[in-house]
Each structure stands twice: as structure tokens, then as C-alpha cells.
Design a protein around this nucleic acid. Structure first.
Length: 270
DNA sequence: CCATGAACCTGGTCGC
DNA sequence: TGCGACCAGGTTCATG
């Protein structure tokens, strides 16, 4: 489920409810869900008043007066607020709040993790620029591509380079900017890099407007689901006609991921 | 430095 | 209906 727009949508949804509340405990229901701390963190004499909820990369950041709690949804994680105490099949952890509400973390595939840190240092050191932030500029993208010889799909998925893009949106952006996903980053013409820069911003903002992409029935916030899947240009359109040239969309494997593209529109720069 | 594959997990779908 | 193979929006580690 989660790339930047989906994670941001979850944050927007739970933020107002959480700020001002206090975490008084956590119940892990799966052994590995707490990555670098244990439930005893919330005992003691510390106060975990929630002062901010935001997104950094694909992490949901819950900032409290004591620790920063970070939740990574990985592939199938969901995070939402619930008032009753019915525990669902895929529930992996429950945060208990002073108000009586709970933050529920569900995750079918058990890849998701919850972290606790003293500050943002470690998180920031592991992630690159925010694609919707001020520091993401055309110059940054141009130099980043020219200074490396990675295949472009891999590079866009690299969270240390740009933080927040995933498999869906990289396919979308590469299609829009007419770049074959196996192109060598340093060989891509400036004109296409420019298009790529614009497409990254456009696609992420469009998707945010639609509250993200939901494929099949991975609804994420209280049963509501994103609408962007209707607007996808290439992702998941294997063997369907390219929206520009009518050629059949191909699906291949790049950087270990299923990758959709148009053989006619997207040029391979090597 | 770069590419690939496996590992971590469960569940849905497709073909036979 | 059943069964095996394969796939999945992410990340990390090992290997060549």
C-alpha cells in the first residue's frame, strides 16, 4: 500500500485525533513488530504526550515529548484509530491512549515495523530528499542522475536518493517522461530529466488529491480507500494499449520489481 | 560501484 | 474442488 501519497494520507487522517493525546502503552501482538524497543518503554515515569504527527519518507512519525515513534507500513501495513477493543486477525500492535482510543497497526505480511528514537537523526541519515520539499530541485535531480550509472528505475526507488517513491509512481513518472526503466541514469538527456522532475511532483500531488492509490481492496484508513488507481497511466496495465500510442504495455522485471512501460514511447538511453 | 537474488511473510489468483 | 506456482505498493543483506 504505501508510497508517499498513501503514507501522507494516513497521516492527514489520524493527525488531528492524536495531537494532544498521550500514549500510555503498547501491546505487541507479533514478536518482531517492535524493531528497536520493547513495550516496557511506555511504563515508567515518562510522558508520551503527542505533539506532532507527520510523514518523513515512507515513515509515519509520531512525535511525543519523550520519544519519536516511527511506523513503517512496508507492503501491507495499515494504521488507524479505533475506539472499541475488538482485535482483528491481522492486528500486530495496539497503542493505548490516555483518551481511551487506540492506534491499531494491522499488517497481513508482517513486514511492517515500529521504531522509537530520541530524535530524527538516524531517520534522516537513512533517507534522501523529500520530493515535494524545497530541497528537491531540477539541479539536484540532474546532478544525481549524471553522477551515477545506475539504471534509472533502481535509482528512483533508492530511498537514500529520493525518499517516498515506490514501484507504482516510478513506473508512472518514467512513462510520462518517456524514459525506459532500464536506461542508465547518466545517459538520460537533459530534456527528459526536466520532464522527469516535473512528473515526480505532478504525479505525487495528483495522487495526494485522490488520497492515494488503492489496488484491489487494500483500503487503508478506516475502510476508506484512495481513488488514484483509476488515474494510473501504465502501472498494472499489462497488455493494454498505451494511452499515447496504442502499443501494448509491457511488463518486465527491473531492479527485482515488476515494471510496466511502453516499448514505443519510452526510449532506452545506454 | 553496480546488478541480481534471496530473505522476511501471508494471501490472492491463475492454470491444470 | 484441489494443488502448486507465481505474484504482491518495501527494505536489507549477501554474492558475483
Amino acid at each position: 500500500m504505501p508510497e508517499l501519497p498513501e503514507v501522507q494520507t494516513v497521516v492527514n487522517y489520524i493527525r488531528d485525533d492524536l495531537i494532544g493525546d498521550t500514549i500510555i502503552g503498547i501491546e505487541p501482538l507479533w514478536g518482531k513488530v517492535l524493531d528497536n524497543f520493547s513495550k516496557s518503554l511506555f511504563n515508567k515515569n515518562h510522558n508520551f504526550l503527542i505533539v506532532d504527527v507527520r510523514r518523513r519518507a515512507k515513515l509515519i512519525i509520531i512525535e511525543t515529548t519523550d520519544k519519536i515513534i516511527a511506523v513503517h507500513l512496508r507492503m501491507t501495513g495499515k494504521l488507524f484509530i479505533k475506539e472499541n477493543k475488538i482485535i482483528s486477525k491481522h492486528c500486530r500492535a495496539i497503542f493505548l491512549l490516555k483518551s481511551g482510543k487506540q492506534i491499531v497497526f494491522e499488517d497481513i505480511r508482517k513486514f511492517g515495523r515500529i521504531y522509537a528514537y530520541d530524535n530524527m537523526k538516524i531517520i534522516d541519515s537513512k533517507h534522501g530528499v523529500e520530493p515535494l520539499g524545497q530541497r528537491f530541485t531540477i539541479k539536484f535531480l540532474y546532478e544525481g542522475l549524471r553522477n551515477r550509472k545506475r539504471n534509472i528505475k533502481y535509482l528512483l526507488l533508492d530511498q537514500k536518493f529520493i525518499a517516498g517513491l515506490g514501484n507504482i509512481y516510478t513506473d508512472e513518472c518514467l512513462w510520462i517522461s518517456k524514459i525506459h526503466p532500464k536506461s542508465i541514469s547518466s545517459k538520460i538527456p537533459e530534456k527528459n530529466i526536466h520532464k522527469l522532475f516535473e512528473s515526480i511532483k505532478t504525479v505525487l500531488l495528483e495522487s495526494l488529491e485522490s488520497m492515494g492509490t488503492t489496488i484491489i481492496n487494500y483500503s487503508f484508513v478506516n475502510g476508506r480507500s484512495g481513488q488514484y488507481s483509476d488515474q494510473l497511466r501504465v502501472f498494472g496495465r499489462t497488455n493494454k494499449p498505451c494511452k499515447i500510442c496504442d502499443y501494448k504495455i509491457k511488463k518486465i522485471r527491473v531492479a527485482g520489481r515488476g515494471t510496466h512501460f511502453c516499448q514505443k514511447c519510452q526510449k532506452k538511453y545506454t
